[in-house]
């Protein structure tokens, strides 16, 4: 089984849950920007939740499906269509051999994920299939997809076959068929809150001037076009740290908000460097990282402070919802 890339889109790369264990060698984590969407896409087609899937950014690719395929599309709504007909998100979908999966306008969010049942047949590099774009390793040939690429897919797991066949029969000569059930992302991620990202204080919060501390939570920040998988540069009234303060380089993580000398914060994301020397004013809570990943340049957001204990609780609740979803899917598989 394989798919052929007709047009690559803006930035389409293979990502899984990231490359851990090598940060001390300067090897960045990479991985999906919106890990929850990636996990759900995989679960819908019967994969392990951490399998690699295509991460699609703002302008989607055009892909020819070479053999019958079983897929799920999650994340932002980039108007996916198969042979010109809209495909629903967040569902298992049978795609008929020869059909073309393409994307249109970016309606909500900015990143979509396409998982195929069985996963993509690429080698793991340092225990991960994620593409490390600058390092040129992992994913498909260590780079974003290009026109003409042919990506092989693995055989689908046995447990997915029944649903696949059911959908295939339902589809008939139609280019695709979607299940009549789906996952609502709002039941796992706090989507309503996307303009109010929750954070906890950063390690150097106290080194910012009192006015800047206040401003950080009161003002609105705009996502600038200078935002990518490494980080989002955001703009508001400039924030100031104490003149004399110097930080010795130390680790940063997914969601760290650091403030360089110019006073405009950077939210560090999937392709962040392992360490940084700018003061950290705040840290986006893990449960809200999917919201950040779906913000696009030009959009505005605010930050709301919560405590570490609240952040931990929100994370644990989100994981519990994922657990329920996994069980629900398990039951579905038995029933199909």
């Amino acid at each position: 089984m394989s798919i052929k890339v007709e047009r690559p889109g803006l930035l389409t790369s293979l990502q899984d849950l990231g490359r851990y264990g090598f940060q001390k060698y300067g090897v960045i984590v990479s991985g999906a920007m919106d890990a929850v969407s990636l996990r759900i896409a995989n679960l819908l087609v019967g994969n392990q939740e951490g399998e690699a899937a295509l991460e699609i950014t703002l302008v989607g690719p055009s892909l020819t499906v070479k053999e019958d395929l079983f897929i799920a599309i999650t994340g932002g709504d980039l108007s996916p269509q198969i042979d010109g007909e809209p495909v629903p998100l967040w569902r298992p979908v049978y795609v008929r051999k020869g059909s073309i999966l393409s994307f249109g306008a970016c309606r909500t969010g900015s990143r979509a994920y396409v998982a195929v049942s069985g996963g993509f047949a690429v080698e793991e590099v340092m225990n991960s299939k994620s593409t490390y774009l600058r390092g040129g390793i992992g994913g498909f040939k260590g780079r974003a997809l290009k026109a003409g690429d042919i990506i092989q897919c693995n055989k689908m797991p046995k447990k997915s076959e029944d649903l696949f066949i059911k959908l295939k029969n339902k589809g008939g000569f139609h280019p695709f068929a979607a299940a009549d059930w789906y996952v609502n992302p709002a039941s796992v991620v706090n989507i309503k809150n996307k303009t109010e990202i929750r954070v906890i204080r950063g390690g150097e919060f106290d080194h910012f001037t009192p006015a800047s501390q206040k401003q950080f939570f009161e003002q609105e920040f705009k996502i600038t076009p200078n935002s990518d998988r490494m980080g989002y540069r955001i703009e508001g009234r400039a924030l100031k740290a104490e003149e004399s303060f110097e930080l010795i380089s130390e680790a940063v993580s997914h969601g760290t908000i650091q403030v360089p000398k110019d006073g405009n914060p950077i939210i560090l994301l999937a392709d962040r460097q392992t360490t940084g020397g700018y003061p950290k004013i705040a840290q986006v809570i893990t449960a809200d990282l999917p919201l950040i990943a779906q913000l696009k340049p030009g959009e505005k957001t605010r930050f709301k402070e919560i405590t570490l204990e609240e952040a931990e609780q929100l994370y644990l609740e989100q994981e519990q919802k994922m657990q329920q979803l996994k069980m629900g899917l398990q039951l579905k598989k038995h029933k199909e």
């Binding site: 009549d180 059930w181 789906y182 996952v183 979803l325 899917l329 039951l331």
Partner: peptide, 15 residues
């Protein structure tokens, strides 16, 4: 589709 019924985070369309 008439409505959806949600169970265990899955939304099932009722036809």
């Amino acid at each position: 589709v008439l409505c959806v019924l949600e169970a265990m985070k899955l939304f099932n369309e009722i036809h």
